[in-house]
Write a protein that binds this DNA or RNA. Structure first.
Lengths: 231, 231
DNA sequence: TCTTAATTAAAAGTAATACTATCAAAAACG
DNA sequence: CGTTTTTGATAGTATTACTTTTAATTAAGA
């Protein structure tokens, strides 16, 4: 997989894969093709057999990279949040006051959702598919019986790091707000789910499919709960 | 399955089952045993074969009631939200002002989570297991490729109805708030996820496993976004 | 109570999934 | 050029998610 700037590589926890898929041609094909296949079929209907057929390779070759499709999902999940963290760190750098920083961070979270074409980065795979997968499938990455072991292995770290970043900004605005983790994780998940709802269960949402209000709505949901200090 | 008051029956969309599981002994056993098994094993590891073994019956007998384990999950999902709606309607009746009504409704959503033993209702199955399933598995009920067809068939109606109830209360407090559906659905899901996070991914939450702050936190998240009219 | 219809059990079978193992062929690399 | 690494081909296993058929059992109606 490629990266945000051509010189920076998104690192994914090596415990997630058996063999680094970025290290070979087949590995990269596994990533890019499985991404669009999972987007099209959904996790339930996606299988390594179908992927192997599509790639004109064999199941056993794929299993050399990932021990299960669940691990493959974790790979995408971590890649996405690591990439987004990078964008947030860069995009909010030097922004003042903290409320604007928060706004910007939320916009970055909503941005790839809003419009893939805004992306002019050299990413070698379908960012649109990656986002769709994060929206529709990533809850399945942690809503499993094995969650505690996998958490210990650091499989959810990238997402937790993004939450931590936002919490830090929230605490710059209001150091005394006691529920920043709850507020932030609820809103990040909320953003993703609202996008899903807008598409599939519209009565659970007020935004239309292609609207760009989400960032604004969620900025206010957070901001209205904080007592601004200073600025 | 039983009910809140002994005279009232929770109705589940009949398209979800092939044969009403409440109508026979085996059906009721399927419900109560699968409930605890899904709670223990998780959806991924739960199978009709294992259930049949536990019940000393056969797979084909179970398939006469539910065409898949997904439908069984939908059954529990709908039962739960239909039951909760009932509790909300009763529990918030005659409460004034609307802000107190909102508070009460959120408490009802959090209450079974908080403490199963507070329940003194004649429910013939494990409410604790049902709640665990709603928390850990119910996202999987709608994060699927078939969501649009299933939505058309009304499989998510019970949840949507609860959201609608809360939206109505929110609009009593502030008729002009334009994002009530987003706010309410985000918070209801947020409550469930926070409980999961508190248990399994505590760095995404500020509440401890057995705390009862959730209702308060989420009441304020909603309330602070509303401009109170009159009372 | 006898008959009939509905329900469940038993057994077997199918197609697909989620893997694992072995070994040979082909690239790549030093 | 030889060796290590990577891939392909083939096969196999255990389990899942069902379906089908037939026989036995139970319940319900006349």
């Amino acid at each position: 997989m490629s990266d945000l700037l051509s010189s920076i590589k998104i690192e994914v926890n090596p415990l997630i894969y058996l063999k680094d898929p970025e290290s070979s041609d087949l590995g990269r094909k596994i990533l890019s093709t499985s991404l669009t296949m999972i987007d099209e079929l959904g996790m339930e209907h996606f299988t390594f057999r179908k992927l192997a057929k599509e790639l004109k390779t064999t199941e056993s070759s794929i299993y050399r990279y990932f021990e299960s499709k669940h691990k493959l999902l974790l790979y995408f999940y971590n890649w996405y949040w690591a990439w987004l963290e990078y964008k947030i760190v860069f995009g909010t750098n030097n922004i003042e006051p903290s409320s604007s920083k928060l706004k910007k961070a939320i916009e970055i979270i909503c941005q790839p959702i809003k419009n893939e074409k805004a992306e002019r980065e050299n990413i070698s795979f379908s960012l649109r598919s990656l986002i769709n997968i994060v929206i529709s499938e990533s809850s399945k990455a942690y809503l499993i019986k094995e969650v505690d072991e996998e958490n210990k292995a650091g499989f959810f770290l990238a997402f937790k790091t993004v939450v931590k970043r936002l919490v830090k900004i929230v605490h710059e605005i209001d150091p005394n707000y006691p529920h920043a983790h709850t507020l932030v994780s609820t809103c990040i998940e909320g953003i993703l789910h609202q996008y899903y709802f807008a598409r599939h269960l519209p009565s659970l949402s007020d935004v239309s499919k292609d609207s760009d209000q989400l960032a604004d709505i969620f900025f206010h949901i957070i901001y209205n709960n904080l007592k601004q200090q200073g600025k």
